[in-house]
Amino acid sequence: MAKKTFESALQRLEAITEEMENGELSLENSLKIFDEGIKLAQFCNAQLADAKEKIEMLIDKGDHLDSESYQEKDSEHQDLSE
């Protein structure tokens, strides 16, 4: 299987739900994909739980990019013309 991304995991979970709704699966297969579905849901939830704000500012060094953490400026310093 290709690298599991949030999106692919969610897609698979949606597909599993649909399949189970159809109710045409054998009990054995139901159990199998149910197990997979629960694992996918856990995976997705874990990814969401990781949702700390992560903002960085890139610094162009010509042939590579550095980054530093971004400090939000006070609103009165904003240049509103742009």
Partner: peptide
Amino acid sequence: PCKISIYP
């Protein structure tokens, strides 16, 4: 749950 990189 997304990282943001600002490219100034």
